[in-house]
């Protein structure tokens, strides 16, 4: 149970960064921390003690295997995180070109 709580602490650190920081770089980093902690929590749910990875091979004795379903869901979620991170970075770079700052309190005139 301690690992679940530590994973939730990591999630809360991400929320803290997204709320209190005014730097766009720090906000992007905290959003990726949120993604890491959620992915890790899924895989923690999937773990079964004294079991092996869910890949069959010839001549290997059949042992209990870990849950393949959350692994399949997280596999695509990681790739999507890369796409969303790239999109956030592109937006931040565009905002920096227009306003010459990453401080979100300085970015006011959001038009054009």
């Amino acid at each position: 149970m301690i690992v679940y709580i530590l994973c939730f602490v990591l999630f809360l650190v991400g929320i803290y960064g997204a709320i209190t920081k005014r730097d766009l770089i720090k906000i992007i980093l905290s959003i990726s921390i949120l993604g890491y902690s959620v992915n890790l929590l899924f895989i923690l749910f999937a773990y079964r003690s004294e079991s092996i990875y869910p890949i069959l091979s010839k001549g290997k004795e059949i042992l209990p295997m870990v849950d393949p379903l959350p692994q399949a869901l997280v596999l695509t979620s990681i790739v999507i995180e890369l796409g969303t991170t790239a999109m956030l970075v592109a937006l931040a770079v565009r905002l920096f070109e227009k306003y010459k700052t990453f401080d979100i309190t300085q970015i006011r005139r959001l038009k054009g």
Binding site: P54, I55, S57, P68, A72
Partner: peptide
């Protein structure tokens, strides 16, 4: 053989 890819 890889059950994760069979689920995906």
């Amino acid at each position: 053989a890889n059950l994760v890819s069979s689920v995906i």
